[in-house]
Design a protein around this nucleic acid. Structure first.
Lengths: 192, 192
DNA sequence: GTGAGATGTCAACAAGTGATGGCCTACACT
DNA sequence: AGTGTAGGCCATCACTTGTTGACATCTCAC
């Protein structure tokens, strides 16, 4: 078995494997699943298309690898009810705008709309990351009732601002969004 | 020149042209632009693929025809500020769930996420249908400030309920949604 | 150095796509 | 009944796609 290479990030294969994944994420994020081609990814990663197959088996598995995502939800259990909406909005804004090179969110959201498999992953992200974080803050009953629509509001923001880029939404500053959307989310969380 | 045919809906060519468009809408709505094939549309419309080209020129123009949409926004100028959010939410829910055979909304929303041209049409729909209707109700200043985020919330609902089909959102009844989302929209409309 | 396994290149395949143009057919009008 | 034309079909092209397998090259332990 071949052992340790000195370069950062592990063996040579690990590096090209990562290069492929990065290129794939960028393309999937920009063009979605169908319009992303293995050849295009390979070109960006400066390797032969067949290497993509060697390391990821096929396009679907490459896509699968690109879908891995962590929302990095903060611990909301100690956030007061008053602060919760603002905290949520701010977290999502920084998560989306923080690191422009991080295409993972874009990949998942964009492809979930047209790809069943990606949609299933989205369900999973909701169930394992969003819902629990919310339940920790407002309790299971309120969360069960409102988590869906809270997510709808946050995803609506992502949709209009980062995918559709509606001018009426991209024109707003993060602060304006926070001031307008936090009360809205607060309203959904309130018992009817 | 051939004249009037007795059949409903005009000449024979008009009928097949309409059949093609209907089939195309259904496929674009279900699978998006890329995964919709001329051959598939033709099969659904029970005609030869070349007929699609004859009547619509090419796939892009067919898509363009399928994107035509009318939100049927009601006149909101006489709706009280208190009733506005509820009216909006209810209108969108019935618009989306009223006629299941009407795929137009689904086509536009689904494809706008991965297709630049469809996104441009979405911008147009917003600018010519949503924004004016809102401006008539709350005045131009408030509309300019909040129309974007109001749309974000309504599109977020559409996204999670009809495209992603998040269980946490599909489980809700229209009434529940109205009760939870209307106050939220009211909050975004309120001056900060 | 040398051989073996890892890494990478090359050419090609089969399938499916949008698109084209020639040909057939049925209908409306005389 | 004859005929021109709109409506429809077939065969086919050129191209792109994912995927494959044979071959070259590089790296490193021995």
């Amino acid at each position: 078995m071949t052992m340790v290479s000195v370069d950062k990030g592990g063996s040579r294969s690990d590096r090209t494997k990562a290069a492929i994944l990065t290129a794939a994420r960028a393309r999937f994020a920009a063009h979605g699943y169908e319009r992303t081609t293995i050849r295009g990814v390979a070109e960006d990663a400066r390797i032969d298309p067949s290497m993509v197959m060697r390391y990821y088996g096929n396009k679907a598995q490459l896509f699968d690898a690109a879908l891995a995502i962590d929302l990095r939800m903060p611990d909301l259990s100690n956030v007061s009810a008053d602060d919760l909406p603002r905290t949520l909005v701010r977290h999502f804004l920084t998560r989306w705008e923080g690191d422009p090179a991080d295409d993972a969110l874009l990949v998942l959201t964009r492809s979930a709309v047209t790809n069943e498999h990606a949609a299933a992953r989205m369900h999973d992200v909701f169930a394992t990351q969003v819902a629990p974080a919310l339940a920790a803050a407002v309790g299971p009953e309120v969360a069960a009732r409102s988590a869906g629509l809270v997510s709808a509001q946050l995803l609506g923001l992502a949709l209009t601002r980062y995918l559709l880029r509606l001018p009426a939404v991209t024109a707003l500053t993060p602060d304006q969004i926070e001031r307008s959307l936090a009360p809205a989310i607060a309203a959904t969380l309130k018992p009817t």
